[in-house]
Nucleic acid binder design. Structure first.
Lengths: 162, 162
DNA sequence: ATTAAATAATTGACTAAGTCAACTAATGAG
DNA sequence: CTCATTAGTTGACTTAGTCAATTATTTAAT
């Protein structure tokens, strides 16, 4: 297969997958979070996030609940730091996240509150439910095939461009 | 493979692919078009678009260059009609698209102008170039494997949810 | 330890994207 | 022909996201 044809193949796939993801986005629309907020929420849920050294001043001085690790998160999600800031602010305002003193060096860490964790669980449940609907009709063999194909795509594209 | 595991697999893939598409979006950022505009442009380029019966008034009465087919396009791209309207307005203002009387029934049709077509060609060239960079390191065999995997994903997911 | 240079965080003002609801025009049925 | 229905269109508004200027924080040099 010539590479030019593959490029068109990928474009076709992009159109398809964009549409599919659009459907899933509607799940998020139901929730009280924007797409960006949901992504941040997922990301915060993934791991506790020690801020690698630098920490917000206000957080320390005035015990504000808002924190750093902004740039790390921003990089992973490719959101502008300024915008991420607003999301984190909103989260702390909603009581979903807060600064806590970290266990070891006392460095503040931004983590989800219990309420934040609950919100995350809800959101994951909703998206899982919708994803499950996408694949409900697949037999075991087809499910395995899909999984395999997704892994292939990832492996082949990850190897390449990034 | 249990379906629950597959759901997680898909989520992982979503994260990966979203990041990848993010890279491609930067191509568009370079261009003078927004993401939505680019999508509309691609879509307009795909086929001439006979407006299935109904046609904008102003377009007829005052020979404004702006047209209908709004809802059809809006559906395919899942953009709100009102927003699509603005994009089309902008395009006609930029001289990229215009209303012409259709060949058969004289019904107005929204089409790209020469300048619009040129813009589309440029944009496609840019995105193709960036896509090509993604796969440049793949050998022929791997390219074929990727193409195959993309088709499998499409087939298996299209069969399912939509 | 002090301070200067460099980098990260934070904010407010601004721009652009997208939605909503009201309004206008076109169509089709009686 | 006219009325009901549907689509197209617009302006006002809300929310998302960016930018540039400011303020903290760190690092390294003295």
């Amino acid at each position: 297969m010539p590479h030019e044809a593959l490029v068109h193949e990928i474009r076709r796939f992009n159109r398809f997958y964009t549409g599919l993801v659009g459907l899933l986005d509607e799940t998020l629309m139901q929730s009280p979070y924007t797409l960006a907020e949901a992504r941040v929420l997922f990301e915060l849920g993934r791991k506790p996030r020690p801020s690698d050294g630098r920490v917000g001043l206000l957080a320390r001085m005035f015990h504000l609940d808002l924190a750093s690790a902004a740039s790390e998160l921003a990089g992973e999600l490719s959101l502008a730091p300024a915008y991420l800031m607003r999301v984190l602010r909103k989260f702390t305002a909603m009581g979903l996240a807060e600064m806590r003193d970290g266990p070891e060096n006392g460095q503040p860490v931004l983590i989800l509150t219990e309420r934040g964790k609950a919100a995350l669980v809800d959101l994951e449940a909703a998206t899982n439910r919708d994803l499950a609907r996408l694949i409900v009709k697949l037999g075991d063999k087809e499910a395995a095939e899909l999984s395999d194909a997704l892994n292939r795509v990832t492996r082949l594209l990850a190897a390449a461009g990034m």
